[in-house]
């Protein structure tokens, strides 16, 4: 999972390091830090944007730690965008509770459905959809596709996966 976090820090020495320690100690990989000196808030705080990759640590714990240290967490944006795959679904996609199909992926905590394009040629005719799943890593993506295939099997939907292309690169 990639997390983009907006913080507001007091303009005193050592604040940035204090803000990054809880993130770093959680095992997260810090990818980018932007220190917006020129965009002070009306109260004089300095906005900081931190982007990190979280593999095992708990995001809630990081936020609690920061807030305990009197740093304001303004917003948190989670993105599962490390690995993604496009698949095709064929069958009665909508009437077999499409929301549930998507929820089963989204509720994993490591993957989510980020795009669905659906084509419904007529009532009683099977629909077709292209569906994009993103996950926090390769093995998580394989797990998520496995979940989709299991759910699709229960709902009599055909899943078309891509061929493996890695070894040709």
């Amino acid at each position: 999972m990639i997390v983009s976090m907006d913080l507001e820090l007091k303009d005193v020495p050592g604040q940035l390091v204090r803000a990054l320690i809880p993130v770093s100690e959680s095992g997260a990989n810090i990818m980018s830090v932007i220190h917006h000196h020129d965009q002070r808030t009306p109260s004089g705080a300095i906005p900081v944007q931190v982007v990190f990759q979280l593999t095992s640590g708990q995001l809630d714990e990081i936020i609690d730690n920061l807030e305990d240290n009197e740093m304001r967490v303004v917003s948190v944006d989670k993105k599962y965008r490390l690995e993604s795959v496009t698949l095709i679904l064929i069958g009665h996609i909508v009437h077999s509770d499409m929301g549930d199909t998507i929820d089963q992926i989204d509720s994993t905590g490591f993957a989510e459905v980020v795009n669905v394009s659906i084509s419904m040629p007529g009532i009683d005719k099977p629909s077709s959809a292209s569906i994009v799943i993103s996950a926090s890593g390769k093995s998580e993506l394989i797990k998520a596709v496995g979940i989709l295939k299991r759910v699709a099997g229960q709902k009599d939907l055909l899943v078309i996966e891509p061929i493996q292309t890695d070894s040709l690169r």
Binding site: I88, I90, G91, S117, S119, P121, K125, P126, S127, S128, A129, S130, L158, I160
Partner: peptide, 9 residues
């Protein structure tokens, strides 16, 4: 079960 719509998607 392959549909023309799936090929177009």
């Amino acid at each position: 079960k392959i549909t023309p719509e799936s090929l177009s998607l």
